[in-house]
Amino acid sequence: MRFFWFLVAISAGILISAFLGWVRTPQKITNTSLSALRSDYFADYVLMAAETYKSNNDIALATYQLAYLGSEKPLYHVQRAIIYAEELGYPLEDMESLALLASAFQPINTPTVTQ
């Protein structure tokens, strides 16, 4: 019987700490990462990478910069950013920068010769 109540007490402790840790989250959020950016800020981050790429054509740098957004492939981030940018009505110049970066990450399809 004593062991039963001991387990109940442990469960209560776990429940309390789970509530404090997961449900009652802090009012002031800090220490978040770039991968958690809101869509408009995300798109702007990718746009910064695109602007940089446009001027220096450094694909390695762009890859490094986009790696901060998550473990997905860089092209995925750029494509997401283009979708957001379209929704937000980015000007043509910015859309072109994003498209240029996307094309840089596109796999090169070599034409297959059929006989």
Binding site: F6, A9, I10, A12, I16, S17, G21, W22
Partner: peptide, 18 residues
């Protein structure tokens, strides 16, 4: 033992959630 259990539970819970 109830207090010990509660503290143990809190420790486990905080370790998991934080």
């Amino acid at each position: 033992y109830l207090l010990t259990g509660l503290l143990l539970g809190l420790l486990i819970g905080f370790a998991v959630t934080f």
